[in-house]
Design a protein around this nucleic acid. Structure first.
Lengths: 203, 203
DNA sequence: GTCTATAACTCGATAGAC
DNA sequence: GTCTATCGAGTTATAGAC
């Protein structure tokens, strides 16, 4: 076990805060919950992070940014479009399996502060959607795929990847799936979603 | 203007509570906010609904149940499958346009109490998914459509309908759409989503 | 039914000892 | 750096007048 990285108080706080904020949200989380989870007391939280808002900001930014490296890596990879889509879907589902509360947390807090959020979002870089669009248009021009609306394609793909996770209690209650069956279901979607998408691109 | 229905205090409270709870969530909402919105004082809230939790429960159940009459009506309609899908997508998008906070509110609060939620959900009736599954299997048997996994089809459709609404700030920041463009975009999806789905069913 | 006033409690934040 | 103790603001809920 590596100690130097994980065993200092600051990192324990961050780990605890991540867990509590992601499951209860900013408004629902209590500093006491975070302190308990980290095995320390409230005063020490304020010693490391001066306020609840500051601590939340750190956690939210980290959670939000976690969504994009994978998108960017997939978009920029020097492989055929079809492989990119397969790669991206598989990686994204893995990430959400490991962080099941992440999507709803980000969506909820983002919608609570849409204005503030819009400003800081891409730090003046090109958005993944813009870069995806350029690539799709190139493929259309080369007649490798039929003419499609790239925004629509992008949103459809992300919808089918993310929504099953945020609606999980719904599917479980409606179909009788348990935790294990749900995970198996998402595992199968690593291929069924790309198949569905790619099929629609072949004229 | 109809007065008898809307102008009594109880209904004013319910309207105010719906607005506040849906935009701020259970944890973020304040009884004072609801009282202000309704134009009354806090004490009167407790006179009509004994506690915040009770009032929330009424609002949540109403919001949750709002999702399903349309699904059921579409599933049970005596029209061809293709028409059902088109009808359902169009109605569902209209509903979410009129209640933009509804989907995220329900998803978030549902995920906060997945256990309690699972019990009460369908009141022992057949879930929409189960009824949808029966219909799809019938169509497959008649060879009207190719063999598909009904659960997957159902979740894909719902994903593409709902997720664009909960991720709205994301698309707006990523693509530069404004409110008007977003509404136009969703209007177009009333046809593009069914097209996408139906196409995948024709072998 | 509706209000004002306030009790009872929760929670973020700080003071100060070690 | 870490703790205990406590303050003070904000919140749910109730008492009681009208």
């Amino acid at each position: 076990m590596v100690k130097s990285e994980k065993d200092n108080t600051r990192d324990r706080i961050l780990g605890a805060a991540k867990k509590v904020f992601q499951s209860k949200g900013m408004a629902g989380a209590r500093m006491q919950d975070i302190a308990d989870e980290a095995g320390i007391n409230k005063a020490l939280l304020h010693y490391y992070f001066s306020s609840k808002a500051k601590l939340f900001e750190v956690i939210f930014k980290e959670a939000f940014s976690q969504f994009f490296p994978k998108i960017n890596a997939a978009i920029d990879a020097d492989i055929p479009l079809e492989d990119k889509i397969r790669f991206f879907c598989s990686e994204y589902i893995d990430m959400m399996k490991q962080n099941p509360f992440l999507p709803l947390f980000v969506l909820y807090e983002m919608n609570s502060r849409p204005k503030q959020f819009a400003k800081e979002m891409w730090h003046n870089r090109q958005s993944p959607l813009q870069r995806f669009t350029i690539q799709i248009e190139k493929e259309v021009k080369k007649k490798n795929i039929r003419a499609v609306n790239p925004t629509e394609l992008f949103i459809n793909m992300l919808s089918m990847l993310v929504f099953p996770f945020v609606g999980k209690p719904l599917w479980m209650a409606a179909s009788g799936m348990d935790e294990l069956a749900f995970n198996q279901f998402m595992e199968e979607r690593k291929t069924s979603i790309p198949n569905f998408i790619i099929e629609s691109l072949n004229k």
